[in-house]
Computed example of a mutant assay.
Amino acid sequence: MCGIVGLHLRNPDFHPRLGELLTGMLCEMADRGSDSAGVAVYGDPTWTPPGTACVSVLELTDAPETVGTAVGGALGTPAMVSVLDATYLVTADTTPQALQTAVAATYPEALIAGFGNDLAVLKGVGDPRTLANAWGLATAQGWQGVGHTRMATESAVTPSGAHPYAVGPDQCLVHNGSFANHATIRRELRAAGVHFDSENDTEVGARFVAQQLAAGRDVQTALKELCATFDGFYTLLVSNRDSFAVVRDAIACKPAVIAETDDWVAMASEYRALSGLPGVQRAKIWEPEPEVVYAWTR
Rank of each mutant, 00 (worst) to 15 (best):
residue 75 L to S: 06
residue 257 V to T: 14
residue 76 G to M: 11
residue 96 P to A: 11
residue 14 F to S: 10
residue 48 T to V: 11
residue 184 T to S: 15
residue 40 A to K: 06
residue 153 T to E: 09
residue 192 A to V: 02
residue 125 V to C: 11
residue 212 Q to T: 00
residue 222 A to L: 03
residue 69 T to Y: 10
residue 274 L to Q: 10
residue 141 Q to A: 15
residue 240 N to R: 12
residue 227 C to G: 00
residue 187 R to G: 01
residue 54 C to K: 03
residue 37 A to R: 01
residue 236 L to P: 04
residue 131 L to E: 04
residue 35 D to A: 14
residue 72 G to Q: 10
residue 261 T to L: 10
residue 18 L to P: 02
residue 245 A to V: 00
residue 140 A to S: 14
residue 166 A to P: 05
residue 111 L to E: 12
residue 80 M to E: 15
residue 224 K to A: 12
residue 116 G to S: 07
residue 85 D to K: 10
residue 105 A to G: 08
residue 196 F to Q: 06
residue 48 T to H: 04
residue 159 P to S: 09
residue 146 V to Q: 09
residue 290 P to S: 12
residue 46 T to F: 06
residue 160 S to V: 13
residue 188 E to K: 15
residue 121 V to G: 05
residue 218 D to F: 02
residue 104 A to V: 09
residue 251 I to W: 09
residue 115 F to Y: 15
residue 199 E to C: 06
residue 295 A to G: 00
residue 120 A to K: 03
residue 177 G to K: 12
residue 128 P to L: 05
residue 87 T to C: 11
residue 35 D to V: 08
residue 212 Q to I: 00
residue 25 M to G: 00
residue 21 L to A: 10
residue 237 L to S: 07
residue 50 P to C: 04
residue 80 M to D: 14
residue 165 Y to P: 00
residue 14 F to A: 13
residue 146 V to Y: 06
residue 200 N to V: 07
residue 218 D to R: 04
residue 61 T to I: 11
residue 257 V to R: 03
residue 188 E to W: 11
residue 274 L to C: 08
residue 87 T to P: 01
residue 288 P to D: 13
residue 214 A to N: 12
residue 68 G to N: 07
residue 221 T to W: 04
residue 170 D to V: 03
residue 238 V to W: 05
residue 245 A to W: 00
residue 148 H to E: 09
residue 225 E to G: 00
residue 151 M to V: 07
residue 12 P to V: 05
residue 1 M to V: 10
residue 138 A to K: 12
residue 176 N to C: 09
residue 189 L to C: 06
residue 267 M to E: 14
residue 162 A to H: 08
residue 171 Q to I: 01
residue 211 Q to H: 11
residue 279 G to I: 08
residue 165 Y to V: 02
residue 200 N to W: 01
residue 23 T to L: 00
residue 176 N to A: 09
